[in-house]
């Protein structure tokens, strides 16, 4: 693919049409960058600047203290009871839930994919299409039933209330991605391991799983980001401040802390920038995982 690029560039003349295309591209890129720029500068301003005399410019005085204000917010302040413990616990909750979900999705989808691509039984195709239904089933179906079931099991406002549904809804994508990779592993490896005395489980754990690293990365990144930003389940199944995830904490900040806009901005930066920094370093890998999650092969 890369080879062809140079030849096309030489064919294309830089005329007014090219210029128009570039202006369009730059304009769209600016529209996409502006919110991040604005959020960042906003988080470093005082109320005076935000509310009137300096809405979109760089901060006149860089108020890094907005960040310490946010980080210092704690559960003891009754006014901020919603914010129990501050933004750090929100991070810890989000990270814990995301990591456990990723683990669960990886185990379940790799095992299922092993059965679907390697084990010998009838109905594999049908079972695969059954799992692929998960790509189109909207999360809404689960809300009422889960709300009732979680309530009866006294599991509302626990990590489980989010981990299990997140894992279930990421499963179809996990199987889709793993199938592509597992089909490429030569069957001769299984046979060799079998001759060496491995059972099905031994082949799976010692031969297949170690060769699935690219699939693991793809599924993990995709699932991680989905969990990190998920809002509907997180806002409905968690009412206890101690278990709230980052998006819910961020939303709670919106109305309740209006007296100090800059601090709200700082909280939003803290919630957003880790993902963006991760993206700067792994942009290609992240993009690939989103493509793999939507398009077969």
């Amino acid at each position: 693919m890369a080879k062809s690029e140079s030849s096309f560039r030489s064919v294309r003349k830089f005329g007014p049409k090219e210029l128009a295309i570039y202006i369009g591209l730059v304009l769209w890129a600016v529209i996409n960058l502006f919110p991040v720029y604005w959020l960042f500068t906003f988080s470093l301003k005082s109320n005076d600047e935000i509310l009137g005399d300096n809405i979109a410019g760089l901060p006149r005085t860089w108020l890094w203290s907005n960040y310490s204000t946010v980080l210092a917010l704690g559960g003891k302040d009754s006014e901020l009871g919603f914010f129990n413990g501050g933004i750090i616990p929100g991070f810890v909750n989000s990270a814990f839930i995301a990591v456990v979900t990723v683990g669960l999705v990886l185990i379940a989808s790799m095992m299922a994919t092993f059965a679907l691509t390697r084990l010998l039984w009838k109905g594999k195709k049908r079972m695969n299409s059954f799992f692929m239904l998960g790509l189109t089933i909207p999360v809404h179906v689960a809300i009422v039933p889960l709300f009732i079931i979680l309530g009866n099991l006294h599991l509302k406002s626990t990590y489980i209330a989010l981990i299990v549904p997140y894992a279930a809804f990421s499963l179809a994508m996990g199987i889709l991605v793993c199938t592509g990779f597992m089909q490429d592993i030569p069957k001769e490896l299984d046979e060799a391991a079998c001759i060496d005395g491995c059972g099905a489980w031994g082949i799976f754990f010692r031969v297949i799983v170690p060769l699935m690293k690219p699939a693991v990365a793809t599924v993990a990144i995709y699932t991680l980001l989905q969990c990190w930003n998920e809002f509907m389940f997180a806002s409905i199944f968690i009412s206890d401040a101690r278990h709230k995830t980052i998006p819910v904490v961020a939303q709670a900040l919106n109305g309740a802390h209006d007296r100090d806009y800059g601090a709200t901005g700082a909280a939003l930066v803290l919630a957003t920038f880790p993902v963006l920094i991760f993206y700067i370093f792994f942009s290609k890998k992240i993009q690939d995982s989103f493509i793999a999650g939507a398009v077969k092969g």
Binding site: S4, E5, S6, F8, R9, I21, Y22, L25, W28, A29, N32, L33, P35, V36, L39, L225, W228, N229, F231, I246, P247, V248, A250, Q251, L268, A271, T272, V275, L276, Y279, S283, I286, Q287, F290
Partner: peptide
């Protein structure tokens, strides 16, 4: 189709997808 800076434009344009809808 192979324009200069295509990776940059691509990466910038994809960025909003990664920001939580709540924050947007």
């Amino acid at each position: 189709s192979g324009r200069k800076g295509e990776r940059w434009f691509l990466s910038i344009n994809f960025m909003p997808v990664l920001i939580s809808a709540v924050i947007i």
